[in-house]
Design a protein around this nucleic acid. Structure first.
Lengths: 232, 232
DNA sequence: ACCTGAACACCGTTCAAGT
DNA sequence: ACCTGAACACCGTTCAAGT
């Protein structure tokens, strides 16, 4: 990591000396957000420090404050970057299929970038969450859900997606590989079963061992869609 | 605050001198968790620092580490304290009404203690979340939802409740009074409406101005229950 | 205008020293 | 055994000084 960032720094210096111009990757809000995503993906939420970020960008600690107000804005911008790619890609003709695709798209984005799940449920009025509201709202309109009911339906669906996002993200953070994840759930199920003799818990523990997060998430979307269309 | 904590310290000293015994409020995990709730309620999540907590307890910074492993455990224990009171109080005969009461109980607890909402969606395997899972699971069983479907239904409902919890908590954190909250939503709706001419957004902005968080949350629970019973 | 990096005002946690 | 508080290894953010 240190080796690599020194190497990048040397390349920049060469370019600057040769052309005698501004370095080609001069700081910009865009470049900073891109670097933020890189640092978050590589080292997780705890790894995103201003020191780590500015080292990755080969610049001084204060430099980023010329382009973003603070770390919170940085996290919101990085999250919007990822979510923007998801909401841009849902062009299905059938509104119900479009909603499913949107929800699963967000699930998969969080699987790839767990920090997105944590960030989404932290601040309701950030751009990324606004994007999700807007997407869900327009599909519900196309589905024929009328005005006031649409607000309730949208709220239910968005809150479900964000809630699941945060929970699954925490799991993905804890166990990176599939094997780790399975072992972790196994231990947890055993703990539950040992801790509490209640048949509900015994049953839940055995379900936990063999459950598939993505399938369970999909089933939840179906339940809400059923609830929405049943009262249309 | 400083005045008050000095006063408490002096009282303790008097008691100790007079009786020549251990001070009456000797540290214990229970007392520490109680103090944590007090500090969180008074100053919010950002206000809970080990320094503030140990000052409130009139003790040294390191003292709490004899009773809890770290700050994360402290937050989980404080959250479990609040959620435990909610799950203990739902004894309705009708399982559907019991689910509604549980969900609204958690909503109200978060309204009173916004930090609970944030904490609940941060760590899926903490005691407080386990409590919620267990409560929901047993009511769904009484509702007649069979094994595998019950896991999907439980996951959907818990994720919805936790997602809504985090979103509303963030709102409650930002605006304490009802008037503040209304003014804030007003400003936000105006920003949306100005920022984006899309009719979906215009419509959502006007809904936002007059919407009631608690009613919307309740509507979401209804949508979910409809979805569950429609496929039973 | 933009960047640098030392300085500031904080954190959570540890641990030798006390009782 | 339990508590104390200085010390440690960090944070995010600011700002005078540079280019």
């Amino acid at each position: 990591m240190d080796r690599r960032s020194n190497c990048v720094k040397m390349m920049d210096m060469t370019i600057r000396t040769a052309r005698n111009t501004r370095r080609s990757d001069a700081l910009s809000r865009e470049r900073i957000v891109e670097a933020t995503v890189e640092v978050l993906d590589a080292t997780g939420e705890a790894g995103l420090t201003v020191r780590a970020l500015t080292a990755h960008l080969s610049t001084g600690r204060g430099a980023i404050y010329h382009h973003v107000a603070n770390k919170e804005e940085l996290l919101a911008a990085a999250t919007d970057d990822i979510v923007g790619r998801v909401t841009a890609g849902t062009g299905d003709d059938d509104p119900e299929r479009a909603i499913r695709a949107l929800a699963l798209g967000i699930f998969d984005a969080i699987d790839a970038h767990p920090w997105v799940g944590t960030q989404l449920s932290r601040e309701p009025w950030q751009p990324a969450v606004f994007r999700i509201w807007k997407s869900v709202g327009s599909q519900l309109q196309r589905l024929g859900v009328p005005g006031p009911a649409r607000a309730d339906a949208g709220s239910a669906l968005v809150n479900y997606v964000l809630g699941a996002a945060a929970q699954y993200a925490a799991g993905a953070r804890r166990a990176t590989s599939d094997a780790d994840r399975k072992a972790y759930l196994e231990t947890l199920a055993a703990q539950w079963a040992q801790h509490d003799p209640d048949p509900i818990v015994q049953d839940a523990a055995s379900q936990l061992r063999e459950h598939d997060d993505r399938e369970q998430f999909r089933a939840g979307v179906d339940i809400f869609l059923t609830g929405i269309t049943a009262r249309r």
